[in-house]
Design a protein around this nucleic acid. Structure first.
Lengths: 172, 172
DNA sequence: ATTGAAACTTGATCGTT
DNA sequence: AACGATCAAGTTTCAAT
């Protein structure tokens, strides 16, 4: 975890996440921090390796989200409840992936947490949801790979991806 | 899935992922497609909802990666092997998250696939790795939430995030 | 380290094919 | 739809604090 990260950096990073853009004018508007200062801070964060590229992929360890927890949650089987339970799980602070899977009302969640202290709260949050029967959590010792969004494409060989979509490879 | 996506769009999207930037000059350099055409294509993809924001978060359904599979893999317990097995799992086409968890050599993987046909190949790929004892896979019926990278910050309340890091909220 | 203003680079637009 | 040339917009730099 990077200790050079201060409140102002956090403010800028949250603004980028919230407004879904790195446009300095908009980040300035959101935070009240001048354009050139925003630029200065972002430059430092890039050099420090907190922001790893132009697409604003983040080093989660560096921002203090080094702890990953994978939870499985079983809920009461009842048609309408899946979505409602799912939304409630998704709203728990620190949870960033929620999947509803085949089998008997089974959710898989992935959370990125700031510390072990949060785990206790997490489980409390699960249990505060009425329809939930049982939960089980496991800690991640090491994250060998993560990619999301456009980064997901890196996991594919372009030729075979095109093939899978019935598209021929255009040779320029 | 969006059928307006053609080979050229895919080429541009892969170039963005590979070069980790959306700089039109660089994408031009990578693909041979003129700057203004790159711009034109990206604009269309944004309007079509394939690219959902300035940070190039993608709608995976729209790019034809609508099928999500979560797998658990147990491997032989042997000090050095974790990383080697992990890397091999990470290299399987379509796998975009690999976690090594507590317990007896247990990996959790998440894959985004183009079609059911790929699942068979996936399992074959798992089994082609020597050290692996047992695998189990489940399909995701619906993805209720996913966020990665800078988007992960959206899962936090800024005040409590700052607090967790021992940072006071600066009032401007 | 911060900032407003200037300088510059680039993304967005336009007109033609 | 594609693309080279042009313009508007954004990013980066700079000098002062």
């Amino acid at each position: 975890m990077n200790d050079t990260l201060d409140e102002r950096d956090v403010k800028i990073l949250f603004a980028i996440a919230d407004r879904e853009t790195d446009n300095t004018e908009i980040i300035h508007e959101e935070t009240g921090i001048p354009k050139s200062t925003v630029h200065y801070r972002l430059q430092n964060l890039k050099e420090a390796g907190v922001i790893t590229n132009d697409l604003y992929e983040l080093d989660l360890d560096e921002v203090g989200l080094g702890l990953t927890v994978i939870s499985e949650v079983w809920a009461e089987f009842d048609e309408g409840y899946h979505e409602r339970v799912g939304e409630q799980l998704a709203d728990i602070e620190g949870i960033n992936q929620v999947y509803f899977t085949m089998g008997d009302t089974d959710f898989v969640l992935i959370g990125r947490l700031t510390s072990r202290d949060m785990v206790e709260r997490l489980v409390e949050d699960y249990e505060s949801i009425d329809e939930i029967n049982r939960t089980s959590s496991k800690f991640v010792i090491s994250t060998i790979k993560t990619s999301e969004g456009i980064g997901t494409l890196r996991d594919y060989d372009r030729k075979s991806f095109l093939e899978a979509h019935g598209l021929a490879d255009e040779t320029e």
